Simulated scan of single mutants.
Amino acid sequence: MLPIALPVGWGAAAVVWRLVCAPEEPAGLGERIVTSAVFFATGAALALGVRCGLYRELRRVREVAHAAQRVLLRPLPPRLDGLALAAGQLSASRGAAVGGDLYEAVATAHGVRLVIGDVRGHGIGAIGAVAAVLGSFREAAYDEPELCGVLRRLDRAVQRHLGERAGDGDPAQPPTAHPASEEFVTVLLLQVGPDGTLTALNCGHPWPYRLRCGPQPPAALPLADADPLPPLGMFPLPAELPEEECGRLLPGDTLVLHTDGAEDARDASGRFFGLDAALTDAALACDGTPVPPAAVIHTVHRALLRHTGGKLTDDVALLVLRDDRARVPAQPGETAETTLRRTRPEPSNR
Rank of each mutant, 00 (worst) to 15 (best):
A109I: 05
G95Y: 06
G121L: 08
A105Q: 04
G82H: 05
E104K: 04
L80N: 06
L114M: 11
G95N: 06
L80H: 10
A109C: 09
G121I: 06
Y103R: 04
G95I: 06
V119K: 06
A109L: 13
A107M: 07
A96S: 15
L76F: 11
R79H: 12
V115P: 00
V115H: 02
A105F: 09
S93D: 15
L90V: 07
G95M: 07
H122L: 03
G121P: 14
A86V: 03
D101M: 05
E104A: 15
A92L: 02
G99A: 07
R79N: 00
A87T: 00
A92D: 09
A87W: 01
G88Q: 10
V106G: 02
G95K: 07
Q89S: 14
D81S: 15
A96Q: 14
L83H: 12
G121S: 12
P78N: 07
L90K: 06
G117P: 04
L83G: 10
A84Q: 14
L90H: 12
V106F: 10
E104S: 15
G117R: 03
Q89E: 13
A87C: 06
Q89Y: 13
A97C: 10
A96Y: 01
R94D: 15
Q89W: 08
D81E: 12
A107K: 10
R120A: 15
A109Y: 08
L80E: 04
G99D: 07
L83Y: 11
L114P: 02
G95A: 08
R94M: 12
A86T: 01
S93I: 00
A97M: 14
R79Y: 07
V106K: 07
A87N: 02
R120L: 10
L114N: 01
D101H: 04
R113V: 00
R94C: 08
H122M: 04
G82N: 09
L102W: 05
G121W: 07
L114E: 01
L85N: 05
D81I: 09
D118P: 11
V115E: 00
L102P: 15
L102V: 11
A96G: 05
V106C: 05
G82A: 08
R120V: 13
R120K: 11
T108A: 04
L114G: 02
G88D: 12
L80V: 05
D118M: 06
R79P: 03
G100Q: 02
D101F: 02
A107T: 11
P78Y: 07
P77Y: 10
H122E: 08
G111Q: 09
Y103L: 05
A86Y: 13
Q89F: 13
G121H: 12
A105C: 09
A105L: 09
D81F: 14
A97I: 01
L76W: 11
I116E: 00
S93P: 08
R113F: 02
V98W: 03
P77G: 02
L114A: 03
A96E: 15
S91Q: 03
V98Q: 10
L85Y: 11
R113N: 00
L80Y: 12
R79K: 11
